[in-house]
């Protein structure tokens, strides 16, 4: 038997709780830097028949002097920024509110307002960003099918597969959304009176269990799809035609 005092004022946890928020911060910051650079670049986003997802739908507007990507990206950016999963990720990794469970947050005690005040009260309109992102998603599907048509007719290239994988992952991310889960049926209390809605809710609930996985996979896929087209446009790689 020996005496001692409490060890740390931040936490008494002895495991590597800091690894996950650190890795999350690095990955999100890298994606943020890459996507910002690509969105403002306004070049190397179109190699027929492939269009970068950052520039889809491609809007040619004479009145808009900046990159057309900026007309679109607010929707998927807003959708991800207000996403219930990403909220957990960035509140922990960037705002340290808190960085880990049973770990002291960065904000001083009493200063915390959560999502009750501006700007974080905006999180409550997540469903509207979902609607906007769904429109963009529709055009990404159009682009994926467009990628089946080359100058010499129907075909499948590696780029076609890249765009299809990307749009499938983005669709799963969107369809597993918590707000969508609520809107399709979660807001009802008596499922037996609306069996179709119940079946839809059940399906979305199943997808929703892996929402975090779809969030990460679709984040990587959208960046990699853009990178693939960028490298094609730069002539660094050539597209392999499968059919």
């Amino acid at each position: 038997m020996a005496n001692g005092t409490a060890q740390s004022s931040i936490t008494l946890r002895t495991d590597t709780w800091w690894v996950l928020p650190l890795v999350t911060a690095i990955v999100l910051a890298t994606f943020g830097a890459y996507s910002t650079w690509r969105a403002f670049a306004n070049v190397d986003f179109l190699v027929q028949p492939y269009l970068s997802p950052f520039y889809s739908p491609y809007i040619l507007a004479s009145w808009w002097p900046f990159s057309p990507a900026l007309l679109i990206l607010w929707a998927p950016l807003g959708f991800r920024a207000t996403c219930y999963y990403y909220r957990k990720a960035y509140y922990r990794s960037f705002f340290m509110a808190p960085p880990g469970c049973a770990v002291k947050p960065m904000a001083k005690a009493g200063n915390y307002e959560g999502e009750t005040k501006f700007p974080f009260i905006i999180q409550n309109i997540h469903r509207y960003f979902f609607y906007a992102a769904a429109v963009v998603l529709f055009f990404l599907w159009v682009d994926a099918f467009h990628a089946l048509w080359f100058e010499d007719g129907f075909g499948i290239g590696v780029g076609t597969i890249v765009l299809f994988v990307n749009v499938i992952l983005l669709s799963m991310y969107s369809l597993s959304c918590h707000s969508f889960r609520h809107l399709v049926g979660g807001r009802f209390d008596v499922f037996s009176k609306c069996p179709t809605r119940f079946r839809l809710w059940e399906k979305v609930s199943k997808w929703n269990e892996n929402h975090a996985m779809w969030a990460w996979l679709s984040l990587f896929s959208v960046a990699l799809a853009d990178l693939y087209i960028f490298l094609l446009a730069k002539g660094v790689i050539t597209d392999l035609r499968i059919i």
């Binding site: 509140y91 469970c101 049973a102 915390y112 959560g114 999502e115 009750t116 929703n208």
Partner: peptide, 22 residues
């Protein structure tokens, strides 16, 4: 309810594995 910022620690520690947050 607006004070909750969805960091899911409640779900992580629940011994009954209730999906408190989701």
């Amino acid at each position: 309810v607006g004070y909750c910022n969805i960091t899911k620690c409640c779900t992580e520690v629940c011994p009954e594995e209730i999906h408190i947050t989701d």
